[in-house]
């Protein structure tokens, strides 16, 4: 139940904190998988009125019903449960588009989810100072293939094969908030065919 620990990393990587309920006229909470735990923990210290103005968008991402009853018991004004980020995306974008001044955003779960919502929310004018994040669960990475520009979700091993162009890529420790992804670069560019054995780096 502890917030994720990362190995020392590069400066472009986002820093994640711990969710803490603030007073606001609207609270939008978006979480995936074990991110539900961060919301449930935050609720223990939140004022009763907090969830009366809250909209929770929860993406199960393979966790089935593990957190559903706990989330339902929070009494949020709106609770949406969706299977994947792609499925939830129209609702997330619609909510951000209709967002009013005074909203606070709480994001919890994987780096891919947090990064993509930050990217979209800031496009809709939400200030970074109104966004809290907490990393939970898998440290799998969302990666952009620098060659074909395709995005590969949930990469756990290094090197790995780009699902778009088929090149084998290593993960460069460089993160783009605009793309919400790390960079993947061909691993055998200087010695074609010499592809090191894949190692599980991101669990």
């Amino acid at each position: 139940m502890s917030t994720s620990k990362f190995e020392p990393s590069i400066i472009s990587r986002p820093v994640y904190g711990k969710l803490s309920a603030q007073t606001a006229s609207h609270n939008l909470l978006i979480a995936d998988a074990q991110g539900a735990e961060a919301i449930i923990e935050m609720a223990e210290h939140a004022p009763k009125s907090f969830f009366e103005q809250a909209h929770i968008i929860y993406i199960q991402k393979g966790t089935a019903d593990a957190y559903l009853s706990q989330l339902e018991s929070l009494g949020a004004n709106q609770l949406y449960i969706g299977p994947t980020y792609q499925a939830a995306l129209p609702r997330i974008l619609n909510t951000l588009e209709n967002t009013q001044v005074g909203i606070k955003l709480y994001l919890a779960g994987t780096e891919g989810l947090i990064g993509q919502v930050i990217r979209d929310a800031t496009r809709f004018g939400v200030a970074m100072s109104d966004i809290q994040t907490e990393h939970r669960g898998s440290t799998a990475r969302r990666i952009q293939c620098v060659h074909c520009k395709g995005i590969i979700e949930d990469v756990t091993v290094d090197p790995f094969q780009c699902s778009h162009c088929g090149l084998f890529l290593f993960v460069r420790d460089h993160y783009s908030r605009r793309i919400a992804a790390f960079q993947g670069v061909r691993v055998d560019a200087e010695d074609p065919g010499n592809i090191p054995e894949a190692v599980e780096r991101f669990k």
């Binding site: 620098v146 060659h147 090149l167 960079q183 670069v185 061909r186 560019a189 200087e190 010695d191 074609p192």
Partner: peptide, 9 residues
């Protein structure tokens, strides 16, 4: 980097 897969070798 975009073309590194071509020029790296």
């Amino acid at each position: 980097p975009e073309n590194y897969h071509k020029w790296g070798k």
